[in-house]
Design a protein around this nucleic acid. Sequence first.
RNA 1: CGGGGUGUGGCCCAGUUGGUAAGGCGUCUGGUUUGGGACCAGAAGAUCGUGGGUUCGAGUCCCGCCACCCCGACCA
Length: 411
Amino acid sequence: MKQSQLFTKTIKETPKDETSFNAQVLIRAGFIDKVGAGIYNFLPFGLKVLNKINNIVREEMATVSGQEVLMTALTPKEVWQATDRWDNFDALFKLTGNDDKEYALGATHEEIVTPLAKKFLCSYKELPKSIYQIQVKFRNEKRAKAGLLRGREFFMKDMYSFHTDQADLDKYYEEVKEAYFRIYERVGLKDLTYLTYSSGGAFSKFSHEFQTVTEAGEDHIYICPDCKVAVNREIIGEHNFCPVCNKAELKEEKAIEVGNIFKLGTKFSHAFDMKYMDNSGQAQEVIMGCYGMGPSRVMGTVVEVFHDDKGITWPEAIAPFKIHLLSLKENEAAEKIYSELIKNNIEVLFDDREDIGAGQKFADADLIGCPYRLVVSSKTLQLGGVELKARTSDQMEIIPLDSIINKFSHK
RNA sequence: CGGGGUGUGGCCCAGUUGGUAAGGCGUCUGGUUUGGGACCAGAAGAUCGUGGGUUCGAGUCCCGCCACCCCGACCA
């Protein structure tokens, strides 16, 4: 991508109606744009990052046999009435069609996925199955805040699994737990992310959240230093000890909930009368689990965790580009490098803008936060190459032109 | 939903005891620059969130509404 052709440009001043760091820097760098409280446009850079996160999620959901679908965002009133949530889920955005038929914008999809799965999963021979989607969700939050961390419209990966019995759900649940940690590892958050015990509802003692420790978080968790698991404050009254080792000295931290997995039991299969035939010909209620993760919230969390005073420091796996190539009045030489990188499928943002000072190009590169910066100038060409600098390092080195491709095909 | 705060060109903002809006960023033109958000000269761009009211006169004072931000409550 050539920066001279880019739809967006960076903004020097911090937007005054945002105080959360992730929103400020993502807006300034041109990743997102604000439309209203908790409502953001995703711009070219932002969409690239979001898609990278989504693709990691897709790869890991595939390892637990999740099949991707796309369900409706417009959901009829009747399905919510079936579970008694039309009047009890106050974050539902409700609307009325021309025929006076009422709908809600999808806030979660148990009410859609259960009738859907009922059509196909009828026998023990067809279970277990797991389907998921990555979709915009709508929640009428009383108070949206903190940029991408809590929006009224946000991206969610929601997966639902269907099982013949509790033991099968329990086993699958553990597999998904592992897949979630692989996702956090790949996006760079694993070291700060704790399996967190939370309230479980009617069908299991606990549900599990994945909480990433950062000052920007709005949840409070209590971490067991020995077991590396945590307890959410919402249940700390009844469980003020580590659920794994019973240790009582837990460390309080602020954290962002970047995922949540939940054993639903038969709550929804019962409401929609979803049963399967067992091998003796008896109809049995299906056991369900659900597994949520917000890619847009993950993106905001990554920004809260990976930045310095100059801008974002993207982990390589989800950076909008691997390399930011800056031409300081040497577009001809830089253009050759750019074409070579493109030819070798190495993602590069090429700052080919003319009449833009070096200072601004450096400042933009730091703000946008690609992992590696290559500078081409008369100085570097005289030294026989280009200057290479990692975003998170102060060290620069001159590398020969013919070594660039080799260097980055391996990184 | 309670409490607090803020609304002035695309963005950040100044605006005194009420007298018709200043500056910076960005944009456009010309020139000078080019390794850390450059400089000079010129230009365009504002029904001051919105609706009432007070006044000879309202960005400024009063009332309603709206939007945004923060704290809290809420967040299967």
